[in-house]
Design a protein around this nucleic acid. Sequence first.
RNA 1: GAGGGUGUAGCUCAGUUGGCAGAGCACAGGGUUGUGGCCCCUGUGGUCAGGGGUUCGAGUCCCCUCACUCUCCCCA
Length: 417
Amino acid sequence: MITLIKGFHDILPDDSPRWEFIVRTAAETLRRFGFREMTPPIMERTELFERGIGELTDIVEKEMYTFEDRNGESLTLRPEATAGMLRAVAEHSLLRKEPVLKVFTIGPMFRRERPSKGRFRQFFQVDAEVVGDDSPFTDAEVIAAAHAIMTNIGATGLMMEINSVGCPECRARYRVVLQDFLRAYLTELCDDCRRRYERNPLRALDCKVARCEEIARDAPLILDHLDESCRSHFQAVQDALRMLGIPYRIEPRMVRGLDYYTRTAFEIVHEELGRSKAVGGGGRYDSLLKELGGPDVGGIGFAIGLERLSMGLSDDDPRFTRSIDVYVAALGDRAQPEAFRILDLLRKAGIAADTRYSTKSLKAHLKVADRFRATRVVMLGDNELERNEATIRDMNTKEQFTVRIENIVAFLQGAES
RNA sequence: GAGGGUGUAGCUCAGUUGGCAGAGCACAGGGUUGUGGCCCCUGUGGUCAGGGGUUCGAGUCCCCUCACUCUCCCCA
């Protein structure tokens, strides 16, 4: 048997109603916030991710599905959506038409990591971006949109964590302060943190190794080293969140894995999965679009992992059960062609109808209709056929009606309401 | 990349000191010649992950391989 690629997964028919609900709810919520859908391809030139995400990040260094096209060009399956979204914004000059652009996309991302609970090599994200606006209200609105998606889907046990990583100038100043502090502990830090000491010392703050955590507890915080404009921006974001009633917690040691974030950064954490497997995350990027060849304006965005979001939902929600409107039961070979024709009429009238040709006895037909959760059954046998009629059974009340064949569609539509 | 755990029917899992391959659910048929859900009966379905070894005999003991899964690093 040929099997699934490791870390990939099928969404089976029984899973689809629940999945479709999540995707639809996310899209509806974002449209309510003024976002419009945009769908870039799932494959881009490798250089886009190297430039956009940062060459020194884990994602670009070791997690990308990169391969050579037949003409020798290096292509990569997208590991996240923002780079492709901003590429499209720049390439089509969308900001000339609309100086503040709010867009979202939903689709699969690919990262070649070791799979585990809630972590896959292909996973779906809903990704939203606001480009061309620096207002702290925009930051709060984006966080509110992420929160609304999860509230509307009904996920529980979630927490919004926020931080400010400052503008590039603040960060450069803070980095020196942090390095001064860490220098005394260099021999005690884990290998990774020591390796990153020069290039990216901030990551030590987020390390999960016990000793590193202890050290990080006493480290100076970037929040205490922001300049006036960054500090007032962060304060304004919090004020706006409180106005909206969004529950949040300041996480002063949060550092995100993508290089492009500036100022506001946030994560959505699930109590069961813990902080190392966020359900969603995002932040502001003030120079990314320019880096990708677009105008020099800032933006902010977030991504939510749909599989992880789905884990916060209960399994037996009645919204997710299958159902059709009408089942057509043909009894005997003479009735079958007529039933076949009726089935087609029902479908053309917009009624969700189905049958099973290999089922013969009425008892078996009704069992199938029951399993399909059909609300009504059209029964057609020799008795009915002779009189040009059909029997229609209401599966809930067990009431039965005799209806002339040419009136079946009208009868079913009339009883619809 | 490092370290644990688990592989028996479509699914969830029993399987005793090594002695005929099992249950529940699901599926199909029947109990009712044309009336579902509950109940009862019957049936279909197995390379016991794969390979090798020990043994009269291996699902069970030993070795190897593979797959899945969880934890850590990191991300959604």
